[in-house]
Design a protein around this nucleic acid. Structure first.
Length: 668
DNA sequence: TGGGGTGATATTTTT
DNA sequence: TATCACCCCA
């Protein structure tokens, strides 16, 4: 990404990392050290120079975005055909294995991938309602944690030490049974189940191992236990391994990532080589000096010292503001100034914060100044209710056992199938040990339901049955369009809300989904169930955000900023209680908070501004706030303390932003 | 079915 | 304090 590093010249360490193929390799890639370049060059090297068949090269990332970026770069580098080369996320790779070894996992054709929403519904149901939402969330979290830690149902039962834990383990068991009944897997299963298959089926294991000539893993510090075991089982004695990661950028321990997997590699692979990438191509010297000094306060298994040739650059500005509103105004007016002074585009600016709620005052200030901005995160396209409705139809088409999908759409649009009908149907299905949709087809149901209800059900089933038959021959895009037509979806949306504009907007989402499915399946010739799976893995969501590559200020959490870089970065809310977060101040978590600050600082290429407030409203009360302890850990000689413009100046002129702007111009 | 009133709740999140 | 989910009523 960095334009500074010559595209075709690797430094000695990078080059060594690319060429070392015969031994397992751990690349310690500091922030901005060109790790993606190393991975992509290595893939090219394996194929071009080592003559490894592309189908034996497998590269794994955590996000679709990273995978796509890697794919694009590799395509540029490899001269020959890259057909068969695998560059995918952990989850997609897991899905690929699961599809091929479906029977070993006890799954039927067309199995559904449940998203976290679906899982939550299942767990809620199993907890017999009544439970508080918080508890349901908690249980889901526990189950997911077990799965990420490679702990099976049986093991969970064994390690349970009290009633509470064993009831959680019971729920885990029931949850897995339920998923099986629905012919569904959740996100975690996409790693868990393949791992189990590889473990238990020697023949499958050998087959997969023989396919893998070289395995490359990106963001290795983010792997959890299950992923680590999965990786190990994918490798045979003959497979090469390149793991690239940075323990200083491990910020996902709270959701199961095990940065100690980096050290484990040393034990599990006796001949492991370690190469450090310490030259930073991203940030100017003072920014880097700050980052280094800060992170030096964490213990390290691998020592690293980042350096840069980019020159010292400007000092880091530290601004103290009275409160969050003033912090937002100061930040925004600084952006206005800087943009003017540096002739910079809005897209070169990023405002980073610890928690999503911190974006509010910033948004307000940005809107006031008519600056366009982009907030990453928030509600994603696929979470929108109407899109999920359509997806549920498609899910049911490929998987008649998917009760969750069935329940979602049986009355969407209205089909006058009431609660009592559904209850009877549920009981009947339960007795017959079959799914709701299958039960709808059984003659026996006729004796349970009245005529009217049965007619409504019949209409629904025959609609889907016809679509299902069509889907065997027609491409998915056609099916979606046909579906929308058959259920009169547009009409239904329109009559649903009085607000025509809102209805149209909703339909646009649905329309967009349809055209995406069309495009996706045209390109790759996928069948319906593959298309649905891809959507479940959000395997195109970020394609959209990339298209919308307008020139906008970037607002995001520190977590979301990992892997990105910006010329001008504003790190707001650098305060005790926020960064380190209140609930992470204990000995155990403080290091990860420090890494989070480190990630924030190292996003900046040329300018970094850190701000904190004197008082901040928390839960309604104005509380005085202290600068973050991490501020003291930064080298003073590179900081420039720059107090905000006094509030009076703004009031007197009545032109807050103009006054701010002038004051800052004068100072800087 | 949708809107208004009420009460709980308040990190980080990809797939 | 602000938001959001949920419940009840029209």
């Amino acid at each position: 990404m960095s334009p500074v590093q010559p595209k075709h010249n690797l430094n000695p360490q990078q080059s060594a990392a690319v060429r070392l193929c015969q031994q397992p390799l751990l690349v310690l890639a500091g922030a901005g050290s060109g790790k993606t370049g190393v991975i992509t060059r290595k893939i090219a090297h394996l194929i071009n120079q080592q003559q490894m068949p592309p189908e034996q090269v497998v590269a794994v990332t955590f996000t679709n975005k990273a995978a796509r970026e890697m794919q694009a770069r590799v395509t540029q580098l490899v001269s020959t055909d890259t057909n068969g080369l695998t560059i995918s996320t952990f989850h997609s790779l897991g899905l690929k294995l699961l599809r091929r070894e479906r029977e070993a996992a006890g799954l039927k054709r067309g199995f559904t991938i449940f998203d976290s929403d679906d899982s939550l519904k299942v767990i809620k149901e199993l907890m017999k309602g009544g439970s508080k939402d918080e508890d349901v969330q908690q249980r889901r979290w526990q189950i997911s944690a077990w799965k990420n830690d490679d702990i099976s149902v049986t093991q969970a039962m064994q390690i349970a030490e009290n009633g509470l834990e064993s009831s959680a383990a019971e729920l885990y068991a029931a949850y897995q049974r339920q998923l099986k009944a629905y012919n569904a897997v959740d996100f975690d299963d996409l790693i868990c189940l393949p791992l189990r298959i590889l473990r238990e089926h020697a023949d499958v294991r050998q087959q997969w191992q023989s396919r893998i000539g070289h395995l490359l893993i990106d963001e290795y510090q983010d792997t959890n236990n299950t992923q680590y075991e999965f990786i190990k089982l994918l490798l045979s004695g003959n497979s090469g391994l390149t793991a690239v990661g940075d323990d200083d950028q491990s910020i996902y321990a709270w959701r199961g990532a095990r940065p100690e997997n980096m050290e484990r590699l040393k034990n599990d692979f006796a001949d492991l080589q370690v190469i450090k990438l310490e030259q930073n191509y991203r940030s100017s010297g003072r920014i880097l000096a700050c980052a280094n000094k800060l992170i030096a306060n964490n213990p390290h298994a691998f020592e690293k010292n980042l350096w840069s040739e980019l020159g010292p650059g400007d000092p880091i500005r530290v601004i103290n503001c009275s409160d969050s509103e003033s912090e937002a105004e100061t930040t925004v007016s600084s952006i206005v100034t800087q943009r003017f002074k540096l002739k910079a585009r809005l897209g070169e600016f990023a405002i980073l914060y610890r928690g999503n709620h911190q974006s509010r005052p910033l948004e307000k200030a940005l809107r006031l100044n008519n600056l366009s901005y982009n907030i990453s995160g928030g509600q994603s396209f696929f979470d929108r209710a109407k899109v999920k409705d359509i997806l549920a139809y498609l899910r049911l088409l490929t998987n008649p056992d998917d009760d969750t999908a069935f329940l979602r759409i049986i009355n969407t649009p209205r089909r006058h199938i009431g609660a009592s009908t559904l209850e009877k149907l549920g009981l009947y299905a339960n007795e017959r040990n079959t799914s709701l949709f299958n039960a709808c087809h059984e003659m026996g149901l006729r004796s349970v339901l009245n005529n009217r209800a049965m007619q409504n059900i019949d209409r629904f089933t025959s609609l889907l049955d016809e679509l299902e038959i069509q889907s065997r021959t027609e491409p998915p895009g056609v099916i979606v369009r046909e579906l929308l037509k058959q259920v009169h979806y547009a009409d239904w949306l329109r009559e649903l809300s009085k607000d025509q504009a809102a209805a149209d907007r909703r339909y646009e989402n649905v329309e967009e989904l349809a055209s995406w499915i069309e495009r996706m399946t045209e390109d790759d010739d996928l069948d319906l169930s593959e298309a649905v799976a891809r959507i479940a893995l959000l395997d195109m969501l970020d394609k959209n955000t990339e298209d919308g590559h307008a020139d906008m200020i970037n607002l995001m959490t520190l977590h979301a900023a990992k892997g990105l870089e910006f010329p001008h970065v504003y790190l707001v809310g650098f305060e005790e209680g926020l960064l380190p977060h209140q609930s992470s101040i204990d000995e155990e978590n403080i290091e990860e908070e420090r890494r989070l600050a480190y990630v924030g600082i190292t996003r900046a290429q040329r300018h970094l501004t850190i701000s904190h407030t004197s008082k901040r409203r928390r839960y309604g009360k104005d509380l005085s706030s202290e600068p973050s302890r991490f501020l003291e850990e930064l080298p003073r000689e590179h900081l420039m303390f720059n107090d905000e413009v006094p509030a009076e100046v703004k009031k007197e002129t009545g032109q807050a932003n103009l006054a701010n702007l002038r004051a800052i111009l004068n100072q800087g």
